[in-house]
């Protein structure tokens, strides 16, 4: 095509960068935090390490100082029958170098607290709020740990495995009935309405 502008070369070579992380950075990280960091078997995609919750802040700072300047994602996982039950998963990326590293922080059910990393990466601020909202894992030192996706008065943390998929509707039939005022049964002889809906409670559960 004509008129195509010249652009700088895009960052490339992710596979070598991941090999570098696996061979150089992860051993160095393990040596710097003996006992606090356990390399896990490199999974299908990228190197990963397990980090003890009490060492997370120091590990995160160590990694940030060595070039991991983007926090790609913070997510939670609930492995219900297992102990420790929860896991907070951080995906890190170093941008010109294209290094990637996954930190997996196991969280005990009775502790439910990990230190925040939002002072290092501001991106973590919203993502940690989401983990708190959906899993109920607190982030110590977070500036504003409130619900983000669910309404403020919501009870429970929906993405936990013991939270019913239908939420309050599962246990409270009244919840639906209260809202269902436009489905009130109609009297015989009432016009059926434009949709031909005769009224009455909704089917299904």
């Amino acid at each position: 095509m004509s008129g195509r502008r010249k652009y700088p070369q895009a960052y490339a070579g992710g596979a070598e960068a991941l090999a570098h992380v696996r061979d150089e950075i992860v051993p160095a990280l393990e040596a710097a935090f003996p006992g606090g960091v356990t390399p896990l078997v490199p999974s299908f995609d990228q190197p990963q390490v397990q980090v003890a919750p009490d060492r997370l802040a120091a590990v995160a700072r160590w990694l940030k100082d060595r070039g991991f300047n983007m926090l790609v994602d913070v997510g939670g996982v609930d492995y219900l029958p297992r102990t420790p039950r929860y896991e907070v998963v951080y995906h890190l990326l170093a941008l010109p170098q294209l290094w990637r590293l996954r930190l997996r922080v196991p969280v005990e059910e009775d502790e439910l607290e990990v230190p925040t990393v939002s002072d290092l990466w501001p991106a973590a601020e919203a993502a940690e709020r989401e983990v708190w909202d959906l899993f109920g894992i607190r982030f110590a030192g977070h500036p504003n740990l409130t619900r983000i996706l669910m309404p403020d008065d919501w009870v429970g943390h929906p993405l936990r495995k013991d939270y019913p998929i239908q939420g309050p509707r599962a246990s409270l039939p009244a919840f639906a009935a209260e809202r269902n005022r436009y489905h009130a049964p109609k009297l015989p002889g009432d016009p059926p309405g434009t949709a031909g809906w005769p009224g009455g409670a909704k089917g299904g559960n």
């Binding site: 939420g167 309050p168 434009t194």
Partner: peptide, 24 residues
């Protein structure tokens, strides 16, 4: 109309639970 494929905690099962709907 009915909540669709999202029969879960977050979604109201049909907007007719809160508004009078004329056409679905």
């Amino acid at each position: 109309s009915s909540g669709g494929i999202f029969d879960n905690y977050a979604i109201v099962q049909g907007v007719d639970e809160v508004l009078p709907v004329d056409i679905y």
